[in-house]
Structures are given as structure tokens and as C-alpha cells.
Design a protein around this nucleic acid. Structure first.
Lengths: 216, 216
DNA sequence: ACCTGAACACCGTTCAAGT
DNA sequence: ACCTGAACACCGTTCAAGT
């Protein structure tokens, strides 16, 4: 009676409604109207359930229009990955596990392929191209996690730390931070993912033999 | 009888022994030899407990010898932060919360100050300097989390995915990934944090007016 | 096959009651 | 003040028993 598809659909529904931290096997079973233990006949684990959800989500990541210039192509592919993860921040948390990316479907991996291929086109060796991808991956995952954890905190409970934020620093020891003061919070709230990404990609491609004429 | 210091010491002991995911209020109380509810007289929350632990850890981060060249100074400061977080990966998880950095002590913030000051010395505006720090922060946190989650998985249960790793990809759709094949795992295991960091810092400093003569 | 409730071994936190 | 056990409202997972 109960099917895997039904379970995944209900899980997506609950995550959208209550956030992914709130998802539990017991609540999920209740949502479907079934005993908690029933789910274990259709899914190995809670972890397995998350894998299946991420796999499904990965299949739905759109393939963007890719520009010709390789560096720009890397930026667009990375931003597509970023935007997909921003919509499912819980996926970012699970995907921090190494070798996990490989379990995504061909569709999501297509964007990884785009980045690696473009780096090679720009003169990287395959090894260097993997290094380029990893750098982008770290930066992207970090941004997503900081963003989503901060958002969660903001909405739920404490704007308490807001005023603790660089308000009362010792200007003798930390002159620049003290003079930035409250402005830090405003600056940190700005979305600078793409600016930082461009800087990173330029830096990575310029590094160690991947250098090529910077197309304007 | 029970003191805050005693609690923090016991917590550090348990984290070192069993990993931070295993730390619970109840186990912590048992380790001290006290009722679980007793802890709530010395600490607000489990979250509060983690804050205190991080604050304490931050005080112990060493101040490195800093090179003169600003770009290199940024790299050294970032690597110091990175190495400290690598020793306490659970701190990285908690610190992903925005505005949380600000609750560290002056000692740990000193490294943030170093980065911001060096960026300004290289010609950044204060706003751009914060942007530089944020980019470094995202990259660093991402690397730490990917590294620690992967390590946890490796040691505990599954080397299962190892062979699922890019072993059976469609070479027609994903030619570069397919030809990398099993090599991906070996490349991903390499520590390339500092290489990527240098690329990022160079890219960030070259960006938007922070440009200055690249000191050799 | 598919589903179930009871049970196990846990959580964080509150609260009235004790010294 | 400092500590406590009982209780509340949860977890993921196993397992023998049912249809």
C-alpha cells in the first residue's frame, strides 16, 4: 500500500512546511497515516531517506545556458549549483560528506562535468581541474551553511547577539573591527556570493599553469 | 560544589574521547557524577555550553609570526584559523551562525583584525576588506566541514561508497568525470586547503580596486 | 509481502520538592 | 544557593506477532 514515492512526497511536504531539522521518521509516518515502523520496509534508514531525497532534488536542477568563455562557464555552473542548494540547505549539510556528490544523478553531475571540462579547456590538467572544482565546492558549501544557519537563527529566536555584534570591542587591540562596529552586521547580510566566486575562479585559473589569456 | 570550570573540563574530556556528536547533557552529568538537571544551574542551555566551550577554545588559538607582505599575512592568519578549527571541527559547525564570530574573545578576533587590516593596507576599502574576510571564511568553513564529515564517515561505518565513486559513469554524458574515475577519490583526499586559499586571496585582492603591485 | 504495537535505548528540558 | 528524581515530550530502530 505504502510506496517509496509516497514517502518521498510526504517528506518533501513536511520539509517545506516545518524545515528539515524538524523531519523525523515518526512525524513522517504520522503524516502518511501509517505506523512508524512501516517506513523501514520501504527505506533502509533515515540517512537512506535523505539520500533518496537529495538524489531526487538533484534530478530537478535545471541546466542553464552556458556562456562560451570557460571561466564564465565555470561561474554560471557554480551559481546554478549554489542556487539549487540555497533552496535545499539541508542537502548542503548532507553533501558535505566526501564522495557523496558522486551519488547524485547524472543530471546534477553534469554541472560538475561542466566545471572540470572548462578548467581543462583553460589549460588545467585533469588533476588541477579537480582542485578547481574542490575550491569552488568548499566556498559554495560554506556560504550556504553560514547563510542558512544564520537565517534559521534570525527567524526563530535571538536577535539578541545583534547588539553584541562588534559593539564593544577594544579599539586599541582591534582598531579596524572596532571602527567597523555595527556596520559589520549590515555588510555580512549582503549577498556577495557571486563576487567572491569570480575572485576565487580567477585566482584558481591563474594558479599553477592553468593560466590563459584573461578574456575581457 | 559543581562549577562551570569543572563542567567545561569534563565536556572537553568527553568530546576528545567520543567526538562532539556524542556529547549530551545527560552523559556530561554522569561523567561529573551529578544529576542531569544539576547542570542547568550552571549553564543556560546545551547551546550556551557550546558557546562557552568555543569561547574558551578561541582564547587558546596561538598568535602566529606574521610576514610583512599583506597578502601573505592574510594567508598565514587564515591558515591559523583553519588549523584551530581542524582541531575542533564541532566549533566550525556552531560558528557557521552569523554574528557568532563576534562572540569569540579578543584573542581569536585578533586574527580577523589581521585579515581586515592587511586587506585595507593592500588598498581595499573597509567594506571590501570585510568582503575579503567573508570569502575566506566561507571557503575555510566549507573545507573544514567537508573534511570532518568525510573523516567521521570513513572511520565509523561505510567505505561502501568508495567503489560507487565515479566508477560507473556514462562516458558519453560525463566524459571528464568518467575518465577521472577512481582517481577522483585520491585527488579529493589531498590537502589542498592552502593552495586554494592562496588562489582565493589573490583573486579577492585583485578584485575591485584592492589591486596593488603583487610583491614577489 | 506488508504492516503493527510494544519495547529499547536514548534525547533536552521543566518543575516541584528536598537540603 | 544548590541539587534532585520524576515527568514530559520527544527521538531512531528492532523484533516478534499479526494479516
Amino acid at each position: 500500500m505504502t510506496s517509496r514515492g509516497q514517502i518521498l512526497a510526504a517528506a518533501r511536504r513536511l520539509i517545506d512546511r516545518d524545515g528539515w531539522e524538524q523531519l523525523s521518521i515518526r512525524k513522517l509516518a504520522a503524516e502518511i497515516g501509517v505506523g512508524a515502523t512501516t517506513l523501514y520496509h520501504h527505506v533502509q534508514d533515515k540517512e537512506d531517506l535523505l539520500f533518496l531525497l537529495i538524489h531526487e532534488a538533484g534530478e530537478q536542477v535545471p541546466h542553464p545556458d552556458l556562456p562560451d568563455e570557460p571561466g564564465e562557464r565555470i561561474v554560471v555552473a557554480a551559481m546554478t549549483i549554489h542556487d539549487a542548494l540555497a533552496a535545499w540547505p539541508w542537502a548542503a549539510e548532507v553533501l558535505t560528506t566526501d564522495g557523496f556528490i558522486a551519488r547524485l544523478g547524472d543530471s546534477a553531475l553534469g554541472l560538475v562535468e561542466v566545471i572540470v571540462a572548462a578548467a581543462i579547456q583553460r589549460g588545467c590538467t585533469p588533476d588541477q581541474a579537480v582542485h578547481v572544482f574542490r575550491g569552488i565546492w568548499y566556498y559554495t558549501v560554506g556560504e550556504i551553511l553560514v547563510r542558512s544557519h544564520s537565517a534559521r537563527r534570525r527567524e526563530s529566536n535571538q536577535p539578541v547577539y545583534r547588539d553584541a555584534l562588534f559593539g564593544s570591542l577594544d579599539p586599541a587591540k582591534l582598531p579596524h573591527l572596532a571602527s567597523l562596529g555595527e556596520r559589520w552586521a549590515a555588510l555580512a547580510a549582503r549577498d556577495t556570493y557571486s563576487d567572491g566566486l569570480r575572485a576565487l575562479v580567477n585566482g584558481l585559473l591563474a594558479q599553477g599553469g592553468c593560466a590563459a589569456p584573461q578574456v575581457p
